[in-house]
Nucleic acid binder design. Structure first.
Length: 885
RNA sequence: GGGCGAUUGGUUCAGUUGGUUAGAACGCCACAUUCACAUUGUGGAGGUCAGUGGUUCGAGUCCACUAUCGCCCACCA
């Protein structure tokens, strides 16, 4: 074995071993409990970043843990076609050759995207393997696969039949760069430092004018009314008058609407039904005309008169200039407002009137709200429940049509003639395939809707579409059985950013189409940030590349480090340096295993429980076993409640600071004996199993060297053995550790060289401590370079000795001639001061009558006992000081 | 405008239902290398738990307010 753990040499080989043996695969097994996680499908455009690393490390830990616990654990992988994002990437690629997608035409462009998908779409999936992800790769799915596309169509048809899908003209969020509609969730609001422009609108047949305030002055070109609050007395006179829209000279009515806040701006609002959602609603209520002044690329159109062809922001400046010249711009004040930005390209989106497809969400939301309220689905951390419910209670209809080419084509066919004749009412067929004829006019040539569906319209079906849903009734399909076995899935692990996009919608879809929740638990983890707290993103260049970290520190180090520093649901602040911890830990385990392998004389196969019952074990043996089982219990509980960082830290503490630091050091004095090797081996072997979900590679590699049987990956999670939890041994061992540390402390502070062994005298009043003499003698020789050890009740203090006072004993190291009296006196006096301070606080507490009367008796007793011990310690320490002078 | 999270030694963070002398990792200081591991070992220094007020016998922990930072939602023309 190499002296240091070499992750590079190990990881690829071990992953092949798992995959080669088919250990990653899961199949329904009636004898086992199902456990299933469907991966949040990464975008095919994605490359692995730390967010993925965290997300997948969590999933893999849960899957491996459950697999070892004996569940049939399926982790189902796949990717998302990411409509807009992928189309953008391929368009950018084309642009390098000076081409646009329209140059290729729809069919060729989509072919091009498929080619891109085949070449690069699997990148992230390959990278997931490097993390050690134990997915069942046979089941890998892609949202544009035939089966999943079929599910999309099925769902569209079902919802349409139910009246939950409709088409209509509404204000939607329009990205002028991507040239498509977006859902409300896809428009990300950001605060901008803008201005409020006060513009004068003349009153017809009068010298007077009114003033409106707006943040987007260019939209005035589409104004078709002005509005005031009906209760606003200031403008009573105004009602019924006609206003002249400057620049375009359109006549505007004055309407009244409750929506208007009299306190904002001037209390008079310009109404632009085609470019503002509120104004659109007012337009509907008051039968106003909608004047669209914009082209899809956000340049103004012919309705904008002289501004035709100008970009929206240029037009804003130019129009303001014109207004200023005409003396109609009254004033400009700074005004912060929030504006939607495209979540894919960050362009400012435009509220835009267009004909789109929508899903009516309220009826779908109701059961999904109930499922969470009833506790059928639980969020971890719990606080997300409120966020979810808040959104669901205020849910709005979902705009699902996208004016792009890459995605699931909307399964709707039109008869152009009938459509035109009926204003869109007739000549529309929702169908799996193109019908031969128009059902309304009976003539041929139907055309399919040009649009595709929102990417999330396939994502929300992911927990069951990946299993081949829908099935024909009575189907005996294997996939149907898989779905029945694994659905509802067990846990969804994801980031907070997509609770609305994805989690909420999956719950609605699961209940609607499968009649059951899609998952029982939702574990929401934090966002990965750099060490200054900025979200990691490629454009900011503050990325820590997980693959680089794997190359440098190893996948286990990456996993363990990121998990142990990630408190449940909190954001993670990462720096490269933090991965050293995981690497060092892997190396520690590697070396302690190497030590054992080097010393083991024979193979160990006997059962620990039998051995425990039969053999006479040392105190250290009983202690390490007891500690192990306590740790096992705590780690199991932590994992079951998603406190992964806690589990990781428990393992670190046990393996490094109990097993390696103490047990192995003690065991060295009897390393030749079978009994010692047996316990060393058993504890290590079980610890490796417990650690395996966190550090799969190093534990598997050691396991293969330790015992040649089945891989650790499919070995059972250790069973708790209550009979080995041994409180007395743990306490006794703690006493010994305290004594050893105290001796080491004296040695270090008195600068006693390691070579120089010392005699130790321990005085105690406790019989149980005296009984530890044999163990103490053996252990302290190795652990604290003690030559001889005396331990007695009321042992006599040797002359000229350094001392330490513990709760239960006094320790003396006679150092006649070696000891620097002054130094020792200083050292002890410092201690005395510390004790005095503590004692003062305690005494005060115990003099407090309220405390004595009101606090529970056991607490009072505890404090009294503490005070007594402290008082004795102080007395002894003062005696020691006196003795030194 | 509403909501959520954070504020604990130099740094990054734990601290589950209020009761131990508030823990860890990294960093720092000192010492140690024929010992499985210098990706190591041993010892040590370092904190009025953001502030104010309250509840309580007792508050890092519960409540209120304040401050700073961050995030999410919202029809702020």
């Amino acid at each position: 074995m190499e002296k240091a753990y070499n992750s590079k040499e190990v990881e690829g080989r071990i992953y092949e071993l798992w995959e080669g043996k088919g250990l990653l695969n899961a199949e329904p097994d009636a004898k086992k409990k199902p456990y299933c996680i469907v991966i949040p499908p990464p975008n095919i455009t994605g490359i692995l970043h730390m967010g993925h690393a965290l997300n997948n490390a969590i999933q893999d830990i849960l899957i491996r843990f459950k697999r070892m616990q004996g569940d049939e654990a399926l982790w189902l992988p796949g990717t998302d076609h990411a409509g807009i994002a992928t189309q953008n990437v391929v368009e950018r690629k084309l642009a390098k050759d000076g081409k646009k997608r329209h140059d290729l035409g729809r069919e060729k462009f989509v072919d091009e995207v498929w080619r891109w998908q085949k070449e690069y779409g699997g990148t992230i999936i390959k990278q997931l393997r490097r993390l050690g992800s134990s997915c069942d790769w046979r089941r890998e799915r892609f949202t544009m696969d035939e089966g999943l596309s079929n599910a999309v169509v099925e769902v569209f048809i079902r919802l349409h039949k139910k009246g939950l899908i409709y088409r209509g003209n509404y204000i939607i969020n329009w990205c002028p760069r991507c040239q498509t509609a977006l859902s409300d969730e896809e428009a990300q609001h950001k605060e901008l430092n803008g201005h409020l422009y006060y513009i004068k609108y003349p009153i017809k047949d009068s010298k007077e004018y009114i003033t409106v305030a707006t943040t987007r002055p260019e939209t005035m070109l589409g104004d078709t009314a002005v509005a005031v609050n009906p209760k606003d007395k200031r403008f009573k006179e105004l009602i019924g008058k006609t206003i002249i829209l400057p620049v375009v000279n359109r006549e505007l009515k004055v309407i009244t609407d409750d929506l208007i806040d009299p306190k904002f701006g001037t209390g008079i609002v310009k109404v632009t039904p085609a470019h503002d959602p509120n104004d659109f609603q007012m337009g509907q209520r008051h039968g106003l005309e909608s004047v669209n002044i914009m082209n899809p690329d956000a340049t103004l159109n012919s309705n904008a008169g002289n501004y035709d062809g100008m970009d929206r922001f240029e037009a804003r400046e130019a129009l303001l200039e014109e207004l200023k010249e005409r003396g109609l711009l009254l004033k400009v004040t700074p005004h912060d407002y929030s504006v939607g930005h495209c979540y894919r390209c960050h362009t400012i989106v435009e509220p835009y009137l267009s004909k789109q497809w929508f899903v009516k969400m309220k009826p779908l939301a109701e059961p999904a709200i109930a499922a969470v309220k009833k506790g059928k689905i639980k969020f971890y951390p719990e606080r997300w429940t409120k966020v979810y419910l808040e959104w669901m209670n205020n849910i709005r209809d979902w705009c699902i049509s996208r004016q792009i080419w890459w995605g699931h084509r909307i399964p709707v066919y039109y008869c152009p003639k009938c459509q035109e004749a009926s204003d869109g009412e007739k000549g529309l067929v929702v169908a799996r395939a193109k019908p031969d004829k128009c059902p309304d006019c009976g003539s041929g040539t139907l055309v399919q809707d040009e649009d595709v569906l929102d990417t999330w319209f396939s994502s929300w079906l992911w927990p069951f579409s990946t299993f081949g849903w829908p099935f024909e009734s009575g189907s005996q399909d294997k996939q149907k059985k898989d779905l029945e076995y694994f659905y509802p899935t067990s846990c969804l692990v994801t980031a907070q950013e997509i609770i609305f996009f994805w989690v909420a919608r999956m719950i609605m879809a699961g209940l609607e189409f499968c009649g059951d929740i899609p998952f029982k638990d939702v574990y929401i983890h934090g966002t990965v940030r750099d060490d200054t707290g900025t979200k990691m993103s490629k454009s900011l260049g503050n990325i820590i590349d997980p693959l680089e970290i794997i190359d440098e520190f190893g996948a286990d180090a990456l996993r363990f480090s990121i998990i142990s520093i990630t408190a449940v649901g909190q954001d993670v602040y990462l720096s490269k340096q933090k991965f050293e911890m995981g690497r060092n830990f892997a190396n520690k385990i590697w070396n302690v295993s190497r030590f054992l392998i080097m010393n083991m004389k024979e193979e160990i196969s006997a059962d620990l429980c039998a051995f425990y019952a039969k053999e006479k074990l040392t105190l250290a043996d009983r202690w390490i076993l007891s500690s192990f089982y306590r740790t096992l219990d705590a780690v199991t509980k932590s994992l079951e409640s998603y406190r992964l960082n806690e589990a990781a830290n428990l393992l670190y503490e046990f393996i490094w600071h109990k097993y390696c630091d103490w047990y192995v050091e003690i065991a060295k004095s009897s390393i030749g004996e079978y009994k010692t090797q047996f316990i060393l081996f058993k504890v290590l072997e079980k610890s490796l199993r417990m650690l395996h979900p966190f550090m799969p590679f190093v534990t598997e590699e050691i396991w293969q060297k330790l015992k040649a049987k089945e891989p650790i990956m499919v070995s059972p999670w250790p069973h708790l053995q209550d009979q080995m939890i041994d409180q007395a041994s743990e306490e006794a061992m703690e006493r010994i550790i305290e004594i050893v540390v105290a001796i080491r402390n004296i040695r270090a502070e008195m600068n006693i060289e390691k070579k120089q062994q010392v005699d130790v005298v321990i005085s105690t009043s406790r019989a149980d401590v005296v009984k530890l003499k044999d163990e103490l003698s053996i252990y302290s020789t190795r652990l604290a370079d003690v030559k001889s050890l005396t331990i007695e009740k009321k042992a006599k203090r040797p002359e000229m000795s350094a001392s330490a006072i513990l709760d239960f004993c006094e320790i003396f190291i006679p150092l006649e001639g070696v000891i620097d009296i002054k130094q020792e006196k200083q050292r002890v006096e410092k201690k005395a001061k510390e004790f005095e301070g503590l004692l003062m606080a305690l005494s005060k507490k115990l003099k407090n009558k309220d405390f004595l009367n009101k606090a529970p008796k056991d607490i009072v007793d505890q404090e009294k006992a503490k005070e007594k011990v402290l008082r004795e310690k102080l007395k002894k320490i003062q005696e020691n000081i006196k003795n030194l002078s």
